[in-house]
């Protein structure tokens, strides 16, 4: 019973994320141009900022509130860097299938999160943060970095990876403490 619930939740969390779009690899790895990569990068960061906003509204757990605050700061920081870079490169971020699937997934996840409260919310938020960061790391490593053409865009993505990985470890730590 419990296992089923967890699996079901994970499914929801992952659906529509980059992981979904990308992990089905092989034939279906999306091919992205630099403007599309920029759009994916900004969107992926904004989604985690949004999740953090929900957590700040709904959670009373100190470790979760601290984590959410960090997510907001860091992901907004990355958006800022990306925005400055695309301006400098005179690139206009271009919405694409991955951006859309990200947004669709986020819409569902937000609805799920907004429907929960208390301990159930805390668990759902942290489970999603673990899954989401893992998915984004996979996408950045396997798709965005390899496909980025502009050296500065590629460098930015490389630069962001350690933060994403630290966020994942942080998320796992908070998740574990909830159990």
């Amino acid at each position: 019973m419990k296992a089923t619930t967890v699996l079901k939740w994970r499914g929801v969390a992952l659906m529509g994320t980059l992981f979904f779009a990308i992990n089905s690899f092989g034939q279906s790895t999306p091919k992205l141009t630099d403007p599309e990569i920029a759009s994916v990068a900004v969107t992926a960061n904004q989604i985690d900022v949004d999740y953090a906003g929900i957590a700040q509204r709904k959670s009373a757990d100190a470790a979760i509130l601290n984590f959410a605050k960090t997510m907001k700061t860091d992901h907004l920081g990355v958006i800022d860097m990306a925005t400055k870079l695309v301006k400098k490169l005179k690139v206009t971020p271009k919405t694409n299938s991955v951006t859309k699937s990200l947004l669709e997934g986020a819409k569902k996840t937000k609805a799920t999160l907004n429907g929960k409260s208390g301990k159930a919310f805390n668990t759902a938020y942290m489970d999603n943060e673990v899954a989401y960061h893992q998915a984004v790391i996979d996408a950045v490593e396997k798709v965005l970095i390899p496909q980025a053409q502009n050296a500065e865009l590629k460098a930015l993505l490389v630069q962001v990876l350690p933060a994403l990985k630290a966020h994942l470890e942080h998320a796992k730590m908070v998740q574990k403490a909830l159990k």
């Binding site: 601290n66 605050k69 960090t70 700061t73 630290a166 470890e169 942080h170 730590m173």
Partner: peptide
């Protein structure tokens, strides 16, 4: 920082550091 004694530290923003 001038430490007075031995000690472990961390980053409170990223607690895994």
């Amino acid at each position: 920082f001038v430490p007075r004694q031995d000690g472990d530290y961390f980053c409170s923003i990223h607690v895994v550091m």
